[in-house]
Amino acid sequence: MVITPKKLIAWEQLPIAILFASGFLVFLLVAAIIPNAISATDPYAIAPRHAFLSPDWNHPFGTDQSGRDILTRVIHGTRQSLLVGAGAVAISFSGGIILGLAGGLGPHWVQKGIGAVIDVLFSFPALILALLFSASLGTGAGPLALAIGIAAVPGYGKMVFSQVLSVRHSGYVEAAMALGHTPFAIVRQHVLPNALRPLIVTATMGVGQTIVWAAGLSFLGLGAPPPTPEWGTMMSMGRDFIADAWWLTLFPGLFIVLTVLSTTILGRFLQRRLEGRSS
């Protein structure tokens, strides 16, 4: 038997997976922008007499220690969680580009210097960095996004840096330089598009990873204040009741898993499309 050299269609390229991923992300976007369209209940409304109800028809995800509906809270928590995820990625994305471009295009000593700085910072576990930053920046969604965003800058910086370096020494950039194009034009026309392409993919997937980190920090008490409906905070509060009320922790976590899964699938899909176009 001979293996067919033709690549098999990867699982994540199957329409079903793409459909699922984009469908879920659209759902999340709607939930983030107009949560009341999906669940009109007040996520803060307490009903002490209905505390700790296990999932049933009225409360598909059950209720928490104050009798609040978990489904409602998960839906309303989308905005907060996505904002932290997207905000942090935006920060690390722009930070990474500035660092990477400066390093990749600057004179030799700048290149060396920034390369070393990126290497040094990259070695720091991002979660520890985020923990330190968020402890000094204070608690809440904004500081959390900022802390994680800054912590992830070295990762993005490293990627842009190496992309810029490889593009810079590529034939067409050298040709453009030989033709006397201004450095700005070269950067805009050649360096940026080529360096950014893989970065867009990483950023898409990064949103998911960032949400996981944010949830981790919320879990340690550094995130959005309870009773804010935020996935990590909800899990953190639910952890104490895990022995009797597993639904407090399971469902917010499940939404994180599905979000990360969707962004990964979409990111990889994007990656194949972009690769296909560039070759």
């Binding site: 699982w11 997976a17 949830a215 879990f219 922790t249 399971l250 994180i256 898993v257 990964t264």
Partner: peptide, 28 residues
């Protein structure tokens, strides 16, 4: 096709699990 799709989807799904959430689920 079936097995490799299954493997790939397992990989992606596993990577999407937040460790602390997985920890709580395992604990439970």
């Amino acid at each position: 096709r079936v097995l490799s799709s299954l493997g790939a989807s397992l990989d992606i799904s596993a990577a999407a699990l937040p460790p602390f959430w997985l920890g709580i689920v395992l604990l439970w």
